[in-house]
């Protein structure tokens, strides 16, 4: 399941729903990313997606994760629009038979989402507006998966 959420979401509720009815899943790993205030420098984070295109790009990433880590299932929920500090931005859940695959798939998905997903992110704070590009660390994080087999 891939969803772009224009309104705040509850990660706990998403996790409960994702776990429900699974009798052959040994491991569910999740990641929840929250918007940071950056010590008052960011008052609003605004995320823009290209509806349809963005979901398809995430689906391609998720299909890679599914094949690479033999996932049974995944969920990606990503906020769009104006996000206040402390609100969840992204929720990723993956289901696998064993924990190692689940942990790694969650890590892999987040590295791809942070560097390759089609979102445009603007921070607004006391100093004005600023469009964000991926950090060098985001590129380094994704390179880990390209060099390892």
């Amino acid at each position: 399941m891939i969803s772009l959420a224009p309104e705040p979401f509850d990660p706990g509720g998403l996790l409960s729903g994702f776990c429900a009815g699974r009798t052959e899943t040994g491991a569910v790993a999740t990641f929840t990313g929250l918007a940071r205030a950056e010590a008052g420098q960011t008052t609003v984070l605004e995320l823009e997606a290209y509806p349809g295109f963005t979901e398809r790009a995430i689906a391609e990433i998720a299909d890679q994760a599914r094949a690479r880590f033999a996932l049974q299932d995944f969920a990606v929920v990503h906020r769009v629009g104006k996000i206040a500090p402390g609100e969840p931005i992204v929720f990723v859940a993956v289901a696998a038979v064993h924990r190692r695959a689940a942990f790694e798939a969650c890590d892999f998905l987040m590295d791809y989402l942070k560097s390759r997903a089609p979102f445009w992110k603007k921070e607004t704070g006391p100093a004005g507006d600023r469009w964000i590009e991926p950090r060098a660390q985001d590129h380094a994080d994704i390179a880990r998966w390209e060099s390892s087999t």
């Binding site: 942070k114 997903a117 469009w131 985001d138």
Partner: peptide, 10 residues
């Protein structure tokens, strides 16, 4: 037709 500037990632 969409013009997509460098993406920020999520």
């Amino acid at each position: 037709l969409a013009f997509l500037p460098p993406m920020s990632g999520g």
